[in-house]
Simulated assay, not measured.
Amino acid sequence: MEGKKTPLYDEHVKLGGKVVNYAGWLLPVQYEGLVPEHNAVRNEAGIFDVSHMGTINITGKDAVAFLDYLMTNDISKLKDKQIVYTFMCYPDGGVVDDLLVYKYNEEKFFLVVNASNVDKDVDWLNQHKKDFDIELENVSENTCILALQGPKAKGILQKLTDTNLSEIKFFYLEDNVKINGINTMISRTGYTGEDGFEIYVNNEDVVKVWKDLLEAGKEEGLKPTGLGCRDTLRFEAALPLYGQELSPEINPLEASFKFFVKLKKESDFIGKDILTKQWEEGLSRTLVGFELLERGIPREGYEVYKDGNKIGHVTTGYMSPTLKKSIGNALISIEEKELGNEIDIMIRKRPVKAKIIDKNFLKNK
């Protein structure tokens, strides 16, 4: 199997990880199994290697203006050390990528982008540098990321650092954090719907930090966790996956993420005119959650019908490990979006009854 390896590749193999090629990277889809790993994150803690994600530095006196022109969220409102989730859009409103923007200060920002989109994102950013006084540096190759997630994550990480983790608010960063003497940047962020931290560390130090965390979390039930449960966890928590809920063809308004699209912010951003027009005139389709009423498991791409007419398609579907029922997201005609509305999911050419439910499947997360 060909693909790029993170510095933790050998550790994954030693731990029995089932390695697959994901976005050109050789990464573990699971170790012990998707369900026990999923449950560990919901109830204790799990640790993911997400070093395949892209990381980009943006520095310079026009950094805020540049990012506000590229991003749908309002970068000018960020405080130092605050983090925001946002989209970069094409002029037609389609999504270039969804990403996190970390603000160190007015002239220093850090972007975390999807692994499959790194080259495209760097090209897009470079295309729009124009007269902005900024420097752009793709540091993806030198940066490893560990995601420690779950209700016991803070207690485990606290054993290894003198930094008071309770003082780091949700969606804030702290830099120069020593983990057993190794310098890191950490953020109180994640992709699971649980409390947790993402740890940014140099390639040469990541194996030690990984091992130290696993050792520190032994008694708390910390498990190494793979891409399989990363997807089920984010889906249960109503978090989107680029290429499924969002894409060049599916814009953030259609995907029900209007909150992160600041149509009234002072600065223009790429795609603002089209998205504003669409919002004012009314959407033709929207993302909904659904629950199967009959046996079956919905999958990405399955067609959705109502009264014999095709109204959309499934973007993500699973047997939910937490809820223990078959649920999914679907992009459908907006006229059919009402909660409780019955629809049919075509599973192996057979219509399976489902009903529309709130896509925030985990109400307490």
Score class of each variant (00 low, 15 high):
Arg348Gln: 13
Asp92His: 10
Asp175Leu: 06
Asp358Val: 06
Gly16Phe: 09
Val352Leu: 11
Thr55Arg: 15
Ser140Met: 04
Asn364Gln: 09
Asp162Gly: 11
Phe269Ser: 01
Phe269Asn: 01
Lys5Ala: 05
Phe109Arg: 05
Phe48Arg: 00
Val118Gln: 12
Ala115Ile: 01
Ser140Leu: 04
Met53Phe: 03
Ser256Gly: 11
Leu263Cys: 02
Leu78Asp: 01
Leu67Arg: 08
Asp231Lys: 09
Phe260Ser: 00
Asn180Arg: 13
Leu8Arg: 09
Gly226Val: 04
Gly296Gln: 11
Ser140Arg: 07
Asn203Ala: 08
Leu233Ile: 01
Leu125Lys: 02
Ile168Lys: 08
Tyr31Pro: 03
Ile58Glu: 05
Thr322Leu: 15
Val13Glu: 12
Met53Pro: 08
His12Trp: 10
Tyr85Asp: 08
Glu280Val: 06
Leu239Phe: 10
Asn138Thr: 10
Ala153Tyr: 10
Ile56Gln: 04
Ala255Gln: 04
Thr161Val: 00
Ile47Ser: 02
Glu335Val: 11
Glu245Asp: 11
Thr6Asp: 11
Tyr90His: 09
Glu135Gly: 14
Pro36Gln: 02
Asn164Val: 02
Lys108His: 13
Gly54Val: 07
Trp124Cys: 04
Lys211Leu: 13
Gly317Asp: 03
Val29Ala: 13
Gly312Asn: 04
Leu283Arg: 00
Ala45Ile: 09
Lys355Gln: 12
Leu287Asn: 03
Gln244Met: 14
Leu34Asn: 13
Trp25Arg: 00
Ala216Glu: 02
Asp268His: 14
Pro351Arg: 11
Glu137Ala: 15
Thr72Asp: 00
Lys306Pro: 07
Glu335Ile: 10
Glu37Gln: 07
Asn138His: 11
Glu294Lys: 13
Asp195His: 14
Glu220Ala: 14
Asp131Ile: 13
Leu67Lys: 10
Ile58Cys: 03
Ser187Lys: 07
Val209Asn: 01
Tyr31Ile: 09
Ile250Thr: 09
Gly181Trp: 02
Lys154Val: 02
Asn126Lys: 15
Met346Ile: 14
Asp123Phe: 14
Lys108Tyr: 13
Asn329Pro: 07
Phe260Ala: 00
Ile332Val: 12
Lys277Asp: 13
Glu32Leu: 15
Lys18Phe: 12
Ser267Trp: 11
Ala237Glu: 06
Leu99Gly: 05
Gln82Tyr: 11
Leu222Asp: 01
Ala23Tyr: 07
Leu287Phe: 03
Lys349Pro: 08
Tyr104Met: 07
Ile270Gly: 04
Glu281Gln: 14
Lys363Glu: 08
Glu280Lys: 13
Glu335Ser: 09
Leu15Phe: 10
Leu263Ile: 07
Leu292Trp: 09
Glu220Asp: 13
Asn203Gly: 03
Leu148Arg: 02
Trp279Glu: 11
Asp97Gln: 11
Leu67Gln: 05
Ala255Arg: 01
Ile168Cys: 12
Leu293Val: 06
Leu157Cys: 03
Gly312Arg: 02
Asp273Gly: 09
Asn329His: 15
Gly312Ala: 04
Leu67Pro: 07
Ser187Ala: 15
